[in-house]
């Protein structure tokens, strides 16, 4: 198995007394589009800042492209393309000026490529950045992140604030440009439906820890919801992997992770009145992971 593009082990980080990352472990396979999910304020941006070497973790290790993110920061940044949420740039610069400015940081800046991208994105080169629309602003930020042909692209909630059309347009560009190019994309978002069509791997961050990390397909397959009739002998306390359980009227819905045949059989044996098993979409899975009720009865 090839070396992962990003490897994080036991990462801890705090802002003062507030612990934000509590031992994050994560591996991002090379060439994957990695969806990084988490609610607002769970530490997604903090983790990304650590990956970029902008802040030093209190403990743990973060390797990006095989390099330590804090000691080999500049080398890492040369290989990374980064786009922040609601990316702000020098508004007083013209589009062509900011491209030239950003190119100054990278010896391998691909002018031909960025020119093509500018045309593709429909970016007017002679107007000031502050005069661009939100969608154009995001396109320009993406252009600046890709201009040096990075191995790894980190997108931190890149579509935040975009209208649905602009969002779809942006995602289309991402897929077109990156999926076919062997570039590793680390796509952080709190919007499931945004990630679902593009990501082949998913990780969910909740309260400073990774609660799930696997391929998108595995996630869809392994999480199941059972709708059952209430029964006095129903006891889930011995059962592992219950993400959510709640009662609606005369039925109970139980969401279970890593659902294999043995778990299925166990649930069916507890409820003789019959059970109904359903697959979940990513939205529902995410909801079960981050706000699910883990009650046992």
């Amino acid at each position: 198995m090839s070396e992962p593009a990003i490897k994080i082990e036991g990462l801890h980080f705090s802002y003062g007394k507030k612990q934000v990352l509590k031992g994050v472990n994560l591996e991002v396979p090379k060439g994957s589009i990695f969806g990084f999910l988490g609610r607002n304020g769970t530490g997604k941006t903090t983790l990304i800042k650590t990956m970029l070497g902008l802040q030093k973790p209190h403990s743990g290790k973060c390797l990006v492209g095989g390099m330590d993110s804090f000691t080999q920061t500049l080398d890492i940044r040369k290989r990374i393309g980064f786009m922040a949420e609601d990316q702000q740039m020098y508004g007083w610069m013209k589009v062509k000026q900011i491209i030239k400015w950003a190119a100054g940081f990278y010896p391998d800046w691909d002018y031909e490529f960025t020119d093509k991208l500018a045309v593709k994105f429909g970016l007017p080169m002679n107007i000031k950045v502050k005069e661009l629309s939100k969608g154009q602003n995001s396109s320009l930020a993406l252009l600046l992140a890709l201009g040096h042909r990075p191995d790894i692209v980190i997108l931190d909630d890149p579509t935040l604030g975009l209208d649905p059309i602009a969002r779809k347009d942006f995602l289309r560009h991402v897929i077109e440009l990156l999926q076919t190019d062997g570039v590793t994309v680390f796509f952080s978002s709190h919007l499931l439906y945004e990630i679902e069509p593009v990501a082949d791997h998913i990780a969910i961050l909740d309260k400073g820890v990774i609660v799930k990390s696997c391929t998108t397909e595995q996630l869809r397959e392994s999480v199941r919801k059972f709708v059952i009739a209430p029964s006095p002998q129903a006891d889930f306390s011995e059962m592992q992997g219950i993400l959510d359980a709640f009662q609606t009227g005369n039925t109970i819905s139980v969401t279970v992770e890593d659902c294999d045949e043995s778990k299925r059989a166990k649930i069916k044996s507890m409820f003789s009145n019959g059970t109904q098993e359903t697959a979940l979409n990513l939205d529902e899975i995410f909801e079960a992971y981050v706000i699910g009720n883990r009650g046992s009865k």
Binding site: K49, L52, L54, L74, D75, R77, K78, I80, F82, A84, D86, Q87, Q88, M89, Y90, A102, F105, Y106
Partner: peptide, 15 residues
């Protein structure tokens, strides 16, 4: 030093 702009230029490979 505006938070968002700060992240923009700090993410560039410059000392």
């Amino acid at each position: 030093m505006n938070d968002k702009l700060y992240l923009f230029w700090r993410s560039k490979p410059a000392g």
